[in-house]
Every structure is written in structure tokens, then in C-alpha cells.
């Protein structure tokens, strides 16, 4: 029951994009088409899940026993950067068009604060191993949910009559804000 709560919390209530407002860069950058948004979401989900596992292992097996807590950030960055390289090579191999579509946002997952945030929040809350796995996977699913919803709305927005000054990033940020308000409604679910 506890694990389900962690999962739902990560997906809906404390959604990384819409609650913490982390990972806004790909959220706005790759949310123009549903196809590439889904792929981006899955890439981030993959990196988040593995990052959660590996950073938990490093944190609990190396850093904490040897009292090296101050190396958390730098070692997490190492984990994330390596994983992103791996994902990049993998996507380039299996789907060059997808590689083109994700463009610069793929290597930018490295500096995506949602993933760094995930590793740090998991370490801060002293989650157990299984909890961390669920938390990482759930956060990725939450990111995917947010970016796909956003892409769906933006595909509709392209056809709508948006006031001239708000076109592009302006209306996208307003939509993101309204979505965040809507997701706030989920807070009551867990209490």
C-alpha cells in the first residue's frame, strides 16, 4: 500500500514537471508533437528509473558508509551523464529519425534538473531500495504523462486562434501553469 502511494504520488501529486517545476526545458522543447513527446517521455523514464537505482546503490553502498555525502551531487551527475550517453547511442542505433526529432534535447537530458532532482530527493527522503525504484519509475511516468498531455494540447493550439503576442512560448507557459493548477487538485488524494 505504501508503495502504491509512492507511485501515485510521483505520477500525479508530486509530478516533477507540474509540482516541482523541474525539467521544464524538454517539457516545452519537445512537446510540439505527440510522437516525439512520447519518445522523449520514455527516454526520460528510462534514464530516471536507472538513475534512481544506480544512485541509490552509490549513495548507500559507497557514499554513506565512507562518510562522503558531499560527493552526492558530483557522483549523481556522473551517473546521469553516462546513462544519457547510453540512451543516445541506443536511440541513434535503433531509430535515426527519432534521434533527429529529439535533437539537442536528448543530450540535454544530462542537465535535466528533473533527473538530478529525482536522485537528490530520493536521497534526502532516505527511501529504501524498492521505494526508490518505484519512485524513479513513477516520476518518469509522471513526466511522460505531463509532456504527452502538453503535446496534445499544443497540437490543438496550433489550430486555434491565439492572440499574436502570446503565440509560441507564451501560450505554452500559460497552458503549463493551468495544468499545474489542475494537478494541484490531486493533493487531496493522499491525505
Amino acid at each position: 500500500m505504501e508503495l502504491a502511494a509512492i507511485f501515485i504520488s510521483a505520477v500525479l501529486v508530486q509530478n516533477f514537471v507540474l509540482y516541482y517545476f523541474l525539467g521544464i526545458c524538454p517539457f516545452l522543447g519537445v512537446s510540439k508533437k505527440i510522437d516525439s513527446a512520447v519518445s522523449m517521455g520514455l527516454a526520460v523514464t528510462f534514464v530516471m528509473s536507472i538513475t534512481a537505482v544506480v544512485s541509490w546503490l552509490i549513495n548507500n553502498l559507497i557514499l554513506i558508509p565512507y562518510d562522503l555525502g558531499y560527493l552526492q551531487i558530483v557522483s549523481f551527475i556522473l551517473v546521469i551523464a553516462s546513462l544519457v550517453q547510453l540512451v543516445e547511442m541506443f536511440i541513434r542505433k535503433i531509430s535515426p529519425p527519432l534521434y533527429q526529432a529529439l535533437g539537442i534535447y536528448l543530450p540535454l537530458i544530462t542537465t535535466n534538473c528533473a533527473i538530478m532532482g529525482l536522485a537528490l530527493i530520493a536521497a534526502l527522503n532516505e527511501l529504501g531500495f524498492v521505494e526508490t525504484v518505484i519512485f524513479g519509475f513513477g516520476s518518469g511516468i509522471g513526466f511522460t504523462l505531463a509532456i504527452v498531455l502538453m503535446a496534445g494540447i499544443r497540437e490543438q493550439l496550433d489550430l486555434s486562434d491565439v492572440p499574436e503576442p502570446l503565440k509560441g512560448a507564451g501560450i505554452a507557459l500559460i497552458v503549463a501553469g493551468i495544468m499545474a493548477l489542475a494537478f494541484n487538485g490531486f493533493i487531496g488524494m493522499l491525505t
Partner: peptide
């Protein structure tokens, strides 16, 4: 520690 970790990940890559 960091050297070892870096070496580990780079060989993986």
C-alpha cells in the same frame, strides 16, 4: 572513489 566510479562508467560506455 570518483576515479573508480568514473572508470567504471566509462568502461561501461
Amino acid at each position: 572513489t570518483m576515479t573508480a566510479l568514473g572508470f567504471l562508467f566509462s568502461s561501461g560506455l
